[in-house]
Design a protein around this nucleic acid. Structure first.
Lengths: 291, 291
DNA sequence: CCAGTTCTCTGACTATAGTCAGAGAATGCT
DNA sequence: AGCATTCTCTGACTATAGTCAGAGAACTGG
């Protein structure tokens, strides 16, 4: 069913919306060059390496595209002072102008495309595309293990703490610097380089035999409702199981209602307090299926 | 707002869903060739002309692509007996197989893409994409005047009558062959060649001075809810206004509730019966703004 | 019947995309 | 210090996409 819809949409897309790419045309620049310009302009200065990965281009190819933008005076490449092998591309003044022009063109195209729709219908379209966007992005994100002091991990942790601080009535204080917990393993899911979901497990032998604790479960606000939390939780459970744990426990605060609902959906049962975490109000456990 | 969503989605699309096009790759054929094969396979034998229009290809380019498929033994082109300048492309046995292979590949890709989502989420995605698809298609459809004996007009009329026949408690009988009404003008909106909305106006001097009647308003079942009916109605009103009419009237059957609701939303008011159409139960009129 | 039009095809290109090997500088590791 | 690795770039290609003019056959409308 879905695949059919997807393919039908694919068709509609290439015929109708795909025209947006043509806004790249009419600028006198080929598509690949415009895309590169767009990518550099989008997130400020960008390392050549990163551009290559994001656009999935061959290094020779990218190099030539960059050269072309340089020749046009739209981009300047400078050597990265931290690693003098690397180069970083920055938009020049003309480059900014060309980027803005690109933005304007694609907005015009988009406006033109949806002009025949009523405001209400445009709203529905925006909502539908937003949902589809979220779900597709969520589907293409994969959790991966990460060291707790990797930049993404630090960023995820900071955002996790910030969210707790915002949601707890009296705020949240992590209490001292973020010390690595012994034996802990962290998992992060990223999209375009920024963390969107995070979580970890660590052994807690004093709570029970073969028991692990789920820590720091966090999902980016904008990504809620796409099942990332459940997937992350399942992933952590699998990870624990693979390391011989037979039971996972976790604690959480009473204000985190969605989280609690999610744990319950995932088969977690309430247990008694097993630690002295002042922020924890609810405690859960789940036996992992062996096999 | 919407344009932002659209553009964000555009990005997601090219990065994630667009990968579906890569299913064309791995077949050893370039994208354009595969797309052509897909297009020919999709709707049975296809005239070269139609293919050129649907794929928006240069005639030389298309000719070469076709030649390539012929050399591979996937397609045979035969002269159209109705017009010996034209040629029609048909899949051979091997072509059918290659087409099926293509279908299978793109389905696999789609499955893989959405595999991490739960069934519920896949449903939501399908619904969102379906809505977006409908609205985008509806937005890119434009009404155009058409002679009442053009094939699309005949098809639309037949489907209109068929629908009435299905919805009226005692069926519907157009009563004799479809005679052209004097002075009537018909408008059709097509998508990929098939009519999706239809309607017409004709002068009815005996009902009132400078008065036109809206006839045969019809919107394809699958396209309801995208505002096509209202757009068609507005288009007909504009047409009437342009021809000097100052008032439009119309009749309809009581079972066509959505239609009645639409007329009321559009500012139509109920009037007394003005004809002896046995199927008509409700009568409406609207004064056209002059200017 | 014939002048103009339509349709598809070929020839002759140009532009764009993409690939692969290897050079030269910088860095990391031991 | 020295060796392997990483990073970007150039050279040398091939493949794909897209354009334009014009030829030749077939149709159409007076």
């Amino acid at each position: 069913m879905l695949t059919e819809v997807l393919r039908r949409f694919n068709r509609t897309y290439t015929q109708r919306i795909g025209v947006l790419d043509e806004s790249f045309l009419g600028t006198g620049r080929p598509l690949a060059v415009s895309r590169l310009l767009f990518e550099i302009g989008h997130g400020g200065p960008a390392g050549v390496r990163e551009l290559r990965e994001r656009l999935e281009l061959d290094s020779g190819h990218l190099s030539r595209l960059l050269r072309r933008l340089e020749d046009e005076g739209l981009v300047a490449t400078v050597i990265d002072p931290d690693d003098r092998r690397r180069r970083v591309a920055v938009l020049t003044g003309d480059g900014e102008a060309a980027y803005d022009d690109l933005e304007r063109r694609s907005e015009e195209r988009a406006d033109l495309l949806v002009a025949p729709l009523t405001p209400r219908q445009q709203e529905r379209l925006a909502e539908a595309l937003g949902t589809a966007d979220l779900l597709v992005r969520a589907a293409t994100v994969r959790p991966r293990e990460v060291s707790s002091d990797a930049p993404v991990a630090r960023e995820a942790t900071a955002r996790y703490f910030a969210e707790l601080d915002g949601r707890f009535p009296d705020g949240f204080d992590p209490g001292g610097p973020d010390a690595p917990e012994p034996g802990a393993t962290y998992v992060v899911a990223t999209s375009d380089g920024t963390p969107v979901a995070y979580g970890g497990i660590r052994p807690v032998p004093d709570v029970g035999p073969a028991t692990a604790e789920v820590k720091r479960m966090w999902v980016d606000d904008a990504w809620r409702g796409a099942g990332l939390g459940s997937r992350m939780l399942r992933h952590l459970e699998e990870l624990a199981r693979g390391r011989g744990f037979e039971r996972v426990v976790l604690d959480t605060n009473g204000t985190l209602l969605e989280a609690i609902a999610m744990y319950e959906r995932a088969g977690y049962e309430r247990i008694d307090r097993y630690n002295d975490n002042p922020y924890a109000e609810a405690f859960f456990a789940k036996d992992l299926p062996t096999g």
